[in-house]
Design a protein around this nucleic acid. Sequence first.
DNA 1: GCTGCTA
DNA 2: TAGCAGCAACGCAGT
DNA 3: ACTGCG
Length: 282
Amino acid sequence: MFERPRMTKLDLVRYYDRVASAMMPHVGGRPLTLVRCGSGVAAGCMYMKHSKVWAPPALTRISVREKTKIGEYLVIETPEAIVALAQMDIVEIHTWNTRKEKIEYPDRIVIDLDPGDAIEWPTVVEAARLVRRLLHTLDLEGFVKTTGGRGLHVVIPLEPRHDWQACLAFARAVAAALVRHDPDRFTTTFGKRGRERQILVDYLRNNRTNTSVAAFSTRARAGAPVSVPVSWSEVTERLRPEAFTAATVPARLERQRKDPWAEYFTMKQRLPAKAVAALEGV
DNA sequence: GCTGCTA
DNA sequence: TAGCAGCAACGCAGT
DNA sequence: ACTGCG
């Protein structure tokens, strides 16, 4: 399926088999959008949103009311289902930020930091830490993960009680606050020109129908690392280890250093009342 | 990858 | 029966 | 309206 390094479908099966159980909590029970590369990655890939097409029996299906019609989506309920996706030539696994039980109420918001070409990695890390600090002022916790590309996601675990519009409004407010805080560094403008030196805060990815929040993806194409929750030791390694020793790490981060995502799945956060208004003052 | 039509 | 074509997303923003 | 983008 891949050239250089050569990777076959069997390799993909082995890989999914190895990571499936770790992936389950992130991708299970959610509507999927998949990237399929049927004739090898070089030949081009297709997005698969609805599940009208064939899928291995290990995948389950759900119907979701959409604007105009009812869409049928594939859902992962077991690790076997993940491995089965390899049989479908699925190379990227994207999920909604809602679980099937509460399809209109996201259980996470993702703040996507998408650096321009001239932005160095440490700057992205710094930005992610800034986002976390911003969230802390609202008594919210955020978890950092790699994206498979050059950026980072700050994931905010939520109790599924705010509809996606409320989540979108919140994400917009966070983005706006970041831009206000440092207009030279942050932008919400999509246009490529002029943002080489800026970090795009991409809040659109929180839209209900959005497909782009990949908890995991196999971006072997780009030679990028596989997207998994990143550990702080990993981040600091790439940052400047000597400048970020345990002595300088706040207790809160120190706790995360051990297992950054340990608390993630137990955390049931609510957006503070008037969170959007509160952010306007930041 | 699968289905369904055609040679 | 072998082979081929068609199929498999979407919405925002910028120009 | 069309294109780029993720």
